[in-house]
Design a protein around this nucleic acid. Structure first.
Length: 556
RNA sequence: GCGGAUAUGGUGUAGUGGUAACAUAGGAGGUUUCCAACCUCUUGUCGCGGGUUCGACUCCCGCUAUCCGCACCA
């Protein structure tokens, strides 16, 4: 970072605070690291970014918006792998109160304790009773998870069960899969989107908005059938050469369609969402020249992901990852399925029904049941493995190692034809995950312009109309002769329109008021002057050109 | 988490062991006022806690926050 950038960054931060866009949270109590307020102007900006994001993905037509709790039971995040991935497991010596990491204590008792779940660590700890490193005792408290997720207890007293504030919104969408699948009439592909808060108890939040402890995230989970070739239309991006930093090819400029054909981007849906992400970022005002996509190295990717790209945006802090677009395979649904025993699958019909000839032995329940009692199930398993040529009575070995004699009356020949028309499979997931705070930071960073005006610094926020927090400022040229009243009535009309924010300002010279409006990026300023009183027209000034034209009040 | 620096009106800064100044911003009024003009009046400040002292914004200690490295993390 150059010195010039640093001072610009300081002036920008000062302005954001002064004008109520972005402020340190709880400042009168001394502040809190990694927590920020969106102020009266920033709150509206965030809302418009969120709304633009929702509209962008809902336009796909097969995407629905949901909202899941931030408070999440332990088991959910254990199943997802977050407990293992995001936490250290701590236990406290009950004699000397020294806290230790459970996996470190158990290194002599297990080849790789780091990979164990909490319950596995707990039972190993109970069994092996490792000595305390700082006192002669070996009595350990129950293991607790520490660090990157915020711990909480759901419910009071002893009936409370452990939980966390979610580190991402995605898990709620995975656990809602059955409802989503039903809603979408059991047809893939479809997606669910969600905007909400996520929490990570970062050891050291830094760089303002870049690493927060509580942050706004927006995620799409797009469920696809891995047996179907995805079909996406890339013609809207045919004129666009985008910067890709690919694992093998290095930095290249190419079209999305070409990158997919040449397998630089390994999955068409990942590529399609990269293209849609590019459009979104440009829509909210990110400089297209300062967007690039970087592919994760194979060893950097989570083990289940088959391809992952970050959209990086260049700003005052250098290139910052703001969006992650990952092909997550079937990992998430499969994990929750394994943990719960509930089916998180979709049905696909085969093009040709598969006809299976079954010919073998099975047990005659009415006879085998009373004869083998508790062993009947194991006997059935063993009999069904016998060759069709078997004769009875015969001795079979059960899976337990036990041997039993099966009489002819215990069995029957099972000969039939079964037609299988389809199968249940675990859908794959492609997930674009957006860090809204980081994107908002870069919107502000890119929009902030300090170009001089008559030798003095004049700051303008060149915000896109899609996200500008205030749509109109209404100024009376003078607040007399009825101009003030007329301006106020126009202000009232503008405020009554849905999703329009208008500000009335009559204090200071007209130039000063324009400057105030430019600083927070108001796209249009409406001025009431003498002529307005005569012919019911006003002037509209454009923020970026400074040009004014006169329109009738009725046409506003 | 470790090391270094910093903390004064909304913002940017000056300054002192005897409770504070400048600029700018804000409010009211004036000015036939269209791009931060000018005039008058006016609001508002020493991060938090403890110690030393007759007296602390100033000195000391702790905490918190911010910035810069390292580590962590995406």
């Amino acid at each position: 970072m150059t010195e010039l950038d640093t001072s610009r960054l300081e002036r920008l931060s000062g302005m954001l605070k002064r004008r109520g866009i972005l402020l340190p949270a709880f400042e009168i109590h001394g502040g809190a690291k990694g927590l920020y307020d969106f102020g009266p102007v920033g709150g509206r900006l965030r809302n418009k970014v969120n709304q633009t994001w929702l509209n962008h993905w809902l336009a796909l037509g097969n995407v629905v918006e949901i909202s899941c709790p931030t408070v999440t039971p332990y088991a959910v995040l254990e199943a997802s792998g977050h407990v293992g991935e995001f936490s250290d497991f701590m236990t406290v010596c009950t004699s000397c109160e020294e806290a230790s990491r459970a996996d470190t204590l158990l290194e002599d008792f297990h080849p790789n304790p780091d990979a164990l779940t909490r319950s596995e660590l707990q039972s190993l700890l109970d069994k092996s009773q490792p000595p305390c490193p700082s006192c002669p005792d070996a009595k350990w408290s129950p293991i607790t998870a520490q660090n990157l997720m915020f711990n909480t207890t759901i419910g009071a007293g002893t009936s409370g069960r452990p939980g966390f504030l979610r580190p991402e919104t995605a898990q709620g969408m995975f656990t809602s899969f059955p409802a989503l699948y039903r809603h979408n009439r059991e047809r893939l592909p479809f997606g669910a989107i969600q905007i909400g808060k996520g929490y990570r108890n970062e050891i050291s939040p830094r760089q303002g908005m870049i690493r927060l402890r509580e942050f706004n995230m927006a995620e799409l989970e797009y469920f696809i059938n891995p047996h179907e070739e995805p079909e996406h239309d890339f013609t809207p991006w045919d004129g666009l050469d985008v910067t890709l930093i690919a694992e093998k090819e290095g930095e290249v400029q190419m079209k999305f369609s070409h990158a997919i054909e040449s397998n630089v981007i390994r999955h068409a849906t990942v590529g399609y969402f990269m293209a849609k992400t590019f459009d979104f970022l440009v829509n909210v005002g990110i400089d297209a020249q300062r967007i690039r996509f970087r592919q994760h190295e194979s060893d950097e990717m989570a083990h289940y992901a088959s391809d992952c790209w970050d959209a990086e945006i260049h700003g005052s802090y250098g290139w910052i990852e703001c969006v992650g677009i990952a092909h997550r395979g079937c990992y998430d649904l499969e994990s929750h399925e394994k943990a719960t025993g509930k089916s998180l699958r979709a049905r696909r019909e085969f093009e040709q029904p598969q006809v299976i000839e079954i010919d073998g032995w099975t047990t005659e329940g009415a006879k085998a049941g009373p004869a083998f009692r508790a062993l009947a199930g194991a006997v059935k398993q063993a009999v069904e493995l016998l060759p069709t040529s078997s004769t009875f009575p015969t001795d079979v070995t059960l899976s337990s190692g036990e041997k039993v004699t099966v009489e002819k009356e215990h069995v029957k020949r099972d000969q039939r034809t079964e037609t299988v028309t389809g199968e249940w499979y675990i859908p794959h997931v492609v997930e674009p995950a957006f860090g809204i705070d980081r994107i908002i930071w870069h919107i502000l960073d890119h929009a902030y312009d300090e170009s001089g005006k008559d030798g003095e610094t004049y700051t303008t926020m060149h915000l896109s109309e899609n996200v500008a927090p205030v749509d109109y400022c209404i100024f009376p040229l003078f607040e007399k002769d009825g101009m003030g009243e007329l301006a106020k009535s126009i202000h009232a009309i503008m405020c009554s329109k849905p999703s329009v924010v208008s500000m009335y300002d009559a204090s200071g010279s007209i130039g000063r008021r324009y400057a105030r409006a430019d600083e927070i990026g108001v796209p249009k300023c409406i001025t009431v002057d003498h002529q307005s009183l005569e012919d019911n027209t006003v002037t509209i000034r454009d923020r970026d050109t400074g040009e004014q034209h006169r329109v009738a009040i009725d046409s506003l």
